[in-house]
Design a binder for these strands. Structure first.
Length: 300
DNA sequence: TTCCAGGAGGGGG
DNA sequence: CCCCCTCATGGA
């Protein structure tokens, strides 16, 4: 057999998904759970319609459903979603490396099918500016209104707005959709991004420099910057410190401290380049546990 | 009524 | 640099 054929065969055997027409089929779902992925706070534009989910990303849409122990992703843009869901990354290896950390094993079991998505940086910047001091249902609502007001209507839904539309919109519009005091941040940052900011250069920077660069944007502090870097640029040597992470910190047996910056640094020193993954499993876990203890077992 | 939510900006020291 | 206050909004 010729070498290229062997190479292709090997690739096929190790591939954890199949492309058929406009579908992606994932047979081994140990590292892909639709609810885990969508419900761990990294993405805001999706709808649960019974046994299936509709997901909107930038100007793409897909339908996700479980079928015969498989996950089926249905879309016109399957190549976009292969990259979006990061399907070529080995999560078995990531989880095996995280398993040795204390306290993390329960979180890994609980959110076993979590994956960190490769989302659009601009969508992440605007979405996580909105997320500041806000709760997830309301964040979703504001983003949905934002898309409806400024996004292009394609194929039965509203795409995430383009930079130009965001930059040219009035501040009053952002207030009307419920952004509150973040309206000014969205407006100013959109203009900065549209006029001068080099979004692509962030990708080439190391995490520390990239964070500093993103924090030049209005409404982007250390936590929002870390979320942008994690979900928009797949930088994982960081640990976003939100109110949940702060509460969690003391339970992880980390050296006692009250300074958020020190806490974050300690966690990154602890988990290394897997910090971003660790944070996602833990975030999903602690929120669900609290939800269960509060509601007596039911979840959303 | 007060507290909380994937916090950040700004002033004062 | 750090500390402290304020910033809309709506659900619990």
């Amino acid at each position: 057999m010729d070498k290229i054929l062997i190479l292709r065969l090997c690739l096929f055997l190790y591939m954890n998904y199949k492309k058929i027409n406009n579908k992606i089929i994932i047979e081994d779902t140990s590292n892909f759970n639709i609810a885990h992925i969508l419900d761990c706070g990294q993405v805001f534009r999706y709808l649960n319609c019974g046994d299936c989910y509709t997901l909107y990303a930038k100007n793409h849409k897909c339908l996700l459903q479980n079928e015969n122990d498989c996950v089926i992703i249905n879309s016109k843009d399957i190549d976009f979603f292969i990259e979006y869901f990061d399907l070529d990354r080995d999560y078995t290896k990531i989880k095996a490396n995280l398993e040795k950390y204390e306290y993390l094993d329960d979180a890994l079991k609980y959110g076993s099918g979590i994956r960190i998505l490769n989302q659009d940086p601009i969508e992440m910047i605007i979405s996580f500016i909105i997320s500041a001091n806000n709760n997830i249902p309301r964040i979703k609502l504001i983003i949905e209104k934002l898309c409806k007001e400024l996004g292009e209507y394609i194929d039965g839904y509203y795409a995430f707005p383009k930079l130009e539309a965001l930059a040219k919109a009035e501040v009053s519009l952002y207030k009307e959709i419920g952004a509150g005091y973040r309206a000014e941040y969205i407006s100013t940052t959109s203009k900065m991004l549209f006029d001068s900011f080099d979004i692509d250069s962030i990708k080439l920077m190391d995490t520390k420099l990239a964070r500093a660069e993103l924090m030049k944007l209005k409404g982007v502090g250390s936590k929002v910057a870390d979320c942008i870097l994690l979900f928009g640029y797949h930088k994982t040597d960081l640990f976003p410190m939100d109110t949940w992470s702060i509460k969690l910190y003391n339970q992880l047996g980390m050296p006692k401290n009250n300074d958020i910056k020190v806490m974050s640094n300690n966690l990154v020193a602890h988990y290394g380049t897997l910090s971003g993954y660790a944070q996602q499993y833990l975030y999903y876990y602690i929120r669900k546990i609290k939800n269960i203890t509060k509601t007596g077992g039911s979840s959303e």
